[in-house]
Design a protein around this nucleic acid. Sequence first.
DNA 1: GTATATCGGATCGTATACGATTTGCGTCTG
DNA 2: CAGACGCAAATCGTATACGATCCGATATAC
Lengths: 244, 244
Amino acid sequence: MSAPAVTMGESLSAGGANSRSGLHGGGMAIQRHKGLADDVYEAVFNKLMTLDIAPGTRITVDGLVRELEVSHTPIREALGRLEGEGLVVKTHLVGYSAAPQITRRRFDELYEFRLLLEPEAARRAALRMGEEHLGKLRKTAASMATLSNSRMRQSYSGFARLDAHFHDQIMEIAGNTLIRDTLAHLHTHFHIFRLMYHARITEEALSEHETLLVALAAGDEVGAERAMRAHIERSRERLLVAFA
Amino acid sequence: MSAPAVTMGESLSAGGANSRSGLHGGGMAIQRHKGLADDVYEAVFNKLMTLDIAPGTRITVDGLVRELEVSHTPIREALGRLEGEGLVVKTHLVGYSAAPQITRRRFDELYEFRLLLEPEAARRAALRMGEEHLGKLRKTAASMATLSNSRMRQSYSGFARLDAHFHDQIMEIAGNTLIRDTLAHLHTHFHIFRLMYHARITEEALSEHETLLVALAAGDEVGAERAMRAHIERSRERLLVAFA
DNA sequence: GTATATCGGATCGTATACGATTTGCGTCTG
DNA sequence: CAGACGCAAATCGTATACGATCCGATATAC
């Protein structure tokens, strides 16, 4: 399960807006190091993440053929990979469709899972914290703050992305790449849910991140663990209204 | 060979409830062919699990075409899915190859991960334990014992499968399918490693399972958690010699 | 008017053909 | 004798064609 984290990172830096309008247009010949299949993968992945394709919606391969102007093969390959990651499902002789929306039960399980992993990871991160780590972490937090103050409403997607990045950075510092990749993978699924019920998940999250940062900066393992636990529990409560 | 005893390797998708040929009608109602892609997937999956394809080995699509006597398309699709699950890797213009052998670092991370999840899961399983659960669990343990006494040396693969099933059953009882799927997925990767260094992982494991069973049967949450922790830690030590 | 049956469009599944790139081996040259 | 260049085989990437299956609409019968 090493792939998800990589793709996650790429998508983080890629930032939506990849203009796929002209494939062979213009003067810039495409440097095909990745192959079309990867391009298709990213395109569909972004469509999923931005809710351009809603959960449960059918994804016709011919539609993608026309839209992306590539042949069946790379599309099938990309779709197969997405299926392996659980983002799309395939039913024989019917076709692909985006994975269904998360259920209440799965929501509970997800938070149970996170509470088992992330507080402990925050504790370890506090022990291994260094100046560089702290700098990057603060940078991410600052980006979220500015984004929140300005055009938050328009780009909640960007905020959610940064939030994921913030948590991922802490996982990186904690050191266990396996746990980090798993959580990144889980978050990928969860992201879609969050976008649909984003409500007011911002102001409070910002201050909670701040509290966590203070504890991490001080190398306070107990405080970091507690702050992370509180953050996740409150996040859960904030999103729970979606099922009310 | 139609359906492995333990159906691991299924996606840990958000949707879950994957109904691949889920019709269980009384008669022999025509069941829609799963499609060649699924057959290819299973074939390659088994080849990976039985070390018929060693870690790091290149997997040529044309080779599979000749061997399985199907066209490129279903093979590509199956390979794409396996890539999404991290069991194979693809490098552009070079081709597919089985995922590389597990590293020492990853080994450590895996056990760290398990120790975070499984003892807690054992504790919850002890609380929710019922008669039916206990019966199935004992049945699995008994199968392992008889297998061990008889032709263990020949079919360590079968033993490993049962061990995975035993742990999976406990995860099922614990109730969190997300954690359960994640661990099953992890185990899929780990399985390959275990097969290569199976050493003498049997006698001790059996008695540890017995200890765990006693605690679970008694609904002793503290004892179950402790037994699971001890079991995993000792399992780690038994396999650690592979890196000596 | 409703329900059933049949027909047509659309989509998936499969197979084959062609072009692009890498890689390994052989040969030539310094 | 060693290294580099180049050619050929193998393999991947891509595109297109054909058959099987499913979904929806229309027409007809009751």
